[in-house]
Design a protein around this nucleic acid. Structure first.
Lengths: 185, 185
DNA sequence: GTCTATACGCTGATAGAC
DNA sequence: GTCTATCAGCGTATAGAC
C-alpha cells in the first residue's frame, strides 16, 4: 500500500485513517503518516494545519447507525445491541478507540459531543414521546456508549464470551425501556 | 504546595496525582511532575521506571463505590446514578478522564478491565441471582460506565441541566432491572 | 500553489559521575 | 540516592526550490 498514485492530499487522508484506527491517536505520529503516504511530514501539517486538525478532518460520519435509529421504534434497543456485538472487529470500533484516546483534547471532545447529538439524540428525541424525550434519548445514548466501551474498548472477556442472545435480550430491553416505558410519576 | 518536606518518592506520587487528574495523561509531562515535586526529572523515572509505571502506581482503588455495591441490593441502581450525578466535580472524575485518555496503552487498558472486575462485577455477581449473575453484573457495570462517560467525560449539556430526579428514576431503574429482573425465557 | 529541506523546542528515557 | 549530560524522537514552523 505504499506510495499510491493519488494526489498527496488524499494519500495523507487515507494513510492517516488507517494508522489512527490501528494504533490510536497518541501512538500515531505525523512522520509515520507521511511515510505511509509517501510524502514529507511537513506537507501533512501544511495541508491540515496540525495533527489534531487532520484527525478532525478525516473522522467519518456513521452511516449504518443512522439506519437503525430510523427503523421501527419498538425494536431499536435490541438492534443497537446487535450492532455493537457484531461490530467488534469493524473499522468503526477502531475509530471509536481513536476518538476516546484523544478525548483529552478539548476540540475532539466537542466533536464527540456534537456527533452524539447529531447522529443519535436529535433524530431519536423526535420520535419518542413522554415528558422528557430528549433526556430519554440522551440516556439511551449513554447506555449504548456503555456497551460500546465494554465491548470495543475494554474488550471484557465476560461480554466477549457471553451468549449473545442473553445480552441482546437483557441489555437491549433495558435500552428499549429507557425510550418507550411510561413516564415516572 | 511547592517543595514539600516529604521524602521525594512521596512528593512525586502526590504531585503526579494532582497533575494527571487535572491535565490528563498525555498533557502531563515528567518534567512538570518533577518541578511540582521539587526534584529532578530523572528521579521520577528512576523511582517508577517510566511515566506509565508512575501512572499505574498511583491509581487509587475506589472506596465509596464499594460501599454502594455492598448496600441494599434493590436500591443499587438509583444509588449508582446519584453517585455519578453528585461526583461530576470530584477528583474521581479526573482520575476517570485520565485513565480513559491513556486507554490506548495496553497495560492501562488491562488495569481498567481488572478494576472493573475487582470492584464492581465480582462483588455484585455474588449477590444477584438468576442464570447469568456475572453477565448481569457486567452489563450493569457497562451501563454505569455509560453514564460516567456522558457526565464526567463528555459533560453533555442535556444531562448536566437535566432534573436529577428524572435521571435517577429512569436510568437507575434501568440498571436495577438489569440486576434483579426475572430471567428472560 | 505544491512540495522539500532544515531546524527549533519539547518529550520520555538513559548512562554515569558525585 | 541524586544530579548532569545527553539521547533519539516528537509536533510544528519557516525559507525557499519547483
Amino acid at each position: 500500500m505504499p506510495p499510491q498514485n493519488l494526489p498527496p492530499r488524499d494519500a495523507i487522508r487515507r494513510a492517516a485513517g488507517e494508522l489512527f484506527v490501528r494504533d490510536g491517536y497518541g501512538a500515531t505520529t505525523v512522520r509515520a503518516i507521511a511515510a505511509a503516504a509517501g510524502c514529507d511530514p511537513a506537507l501533512v501539517i501544511r495541508h491540515f494545519g496540525s495533527k489534531e486538525g487532520l484527525f478532525l478532518a478525516i473522522l467519518p460520519v456513521s452511516g449504518s447507525l443512522t439506519q437503525i435509529l430510523a427503523g421501527p421504534l419498538d425494536s431499536i434497543g435490541r438492534e443497537l445491541v446487535r450492532y455493537v456485538l457484531e461490530g467488534a472487529e469493524s473499522p468503526l470500533a477502531g475509530v471509536y478507540r481513536a476518538m476516546v484516546s484523544a478525548s483529552d483534547r478539548p476540540e475532539i471532545k466537542d466533536r464527540l459531543r456534537a456527533s452524539i447529538h447529531d447522529v443519535f439524540v436529535g433524530p431519536l428525541a423526535e420520535r419518542v414521546g413522554g415528558t422528557y424525550p430528549e433526556l430519554r434519548a440522551r440516556l439511551a445514548a449513554a447506555q449504548f456508549a456503555g456497551l460500546i466501551n465494554a465491548c470495543w474498548l475494554v474488550a471484557d472477556p465476560v461480554l466477549v464470551c457471553a451468549e449473545s442472545d442473553a445480552v441482546v435480550t437483557l441489555y437491549g430491553d433495558a435500552i428499549q425501556r429507557l425510550l418507550t416505558s411510561p413516564d415516572p410519576t
